[in-house]
Design a protein around this nucleic acid. Structure first.
Lengths: 145, 145
DNA sequence: CTGCTTGCAAATCTTTTGCATTGAA
DNA sequence: TTCAATGCAAAAGATTTGCAAGCAG
């Protein structure tokens, strides 16, 4: 068994959930993937796990901090949290909904620390979502920013 | 006609959309409001604008950078973007759920610009949500971070 | 005028639920 | 063995679409 699966089992156990085949399969579908829609996820699970179980699994994964939802365009997508992948931010295009991951950035993290220290808070995590227009969509003639 | 309506008209025009009564009405429903769900919005619009038109309006508003969706609780909500209200970030306490608004911060905004310029995107807005423990909750004895 | 917008109603997509059955611990 | 978890089918919600009629430019 591989490292992330041991971590997964550990987290599930800590939260009082049992380690089942369907849950491990859903997890597999999330590893090393871009954020994906529930439609994509349930499609990829088709034949293996029922749609309802995928939803149920994602729900408990979210509750346990294994996955997080990010909102893009009208819909949301899911991805593994920072525990399983490097921390990053998202840049999304308001027109075509293309999504780009921005790498972790020390300047920003440090600045957050400075700001929050002023208020004497202990910060544990944060999310930064940036919207704009991608290189391609800026050029569309009939479209003036 | 009031200032925000002039700005609204201006943005719509720039994006090639016409200024219609329903669009102005939806805009009115968004002014000076907390972020609201589509259900709330369509309910408040009932009798005046059809549900489908509210959705169509919100979609083009988002594309034009007039509204943004934010993730609060389980569902998303919509609110006017920073163009129409002062930009700020949120700091929320994981234990007592206290919410603090952080003022706009130039260091962060500048850093976002640097990061996104690399990708040749035009950035219009962003949201930063920070979580942690507030001054008070850190001190609670029975509570170990 | 002319083409973009709207309302209406129906269609489609997304997510959840009830229940009998299966499987993990 | 026991109770949580699953698949299936159906219900409930949320969002979109086609089309004729109405308005902005």
């Amino acid at each position: 068994m591989d490292k992330p699966y041991i971590l997964l089992a550990d987290i599930l156990k800590r939260h009082g959930y049992s380690i089942t085949k369907p849950r491990q399969t859903v997890f597999t579908l999330l590893i090393n993937q871009e954020p994906q829609s529930m439609y994509t996820l349930t499609s990829r699970a088709k034949g293996k796990i029922d749609r309802a179980s995928v939803y149920r699994t994602i729900r408990i994964f979210e509750e346990a901090g294994i996955v997080q939802r990010i909102y893009i365009g009208w819909k949301y997508k899911v991805e593994l949290t920072d525990i399983f992948s490097r921390h990053h931010h998202h840049l999304s295009c308001l027109r075509c909904h293309k999504l780009l991951a921005l790498p972790e950035d020390n300047t920003i993290e440090k600045r957050i620390t400075v700001l929050t220290n002023k208020h004497h808070w202990v910060v544990t995590n944060h999310q930064l979502e940036v919207q704009g227009y991608c290189e391609h969509c800026q050029k569309i003639e009939s479209f003036n920013l």
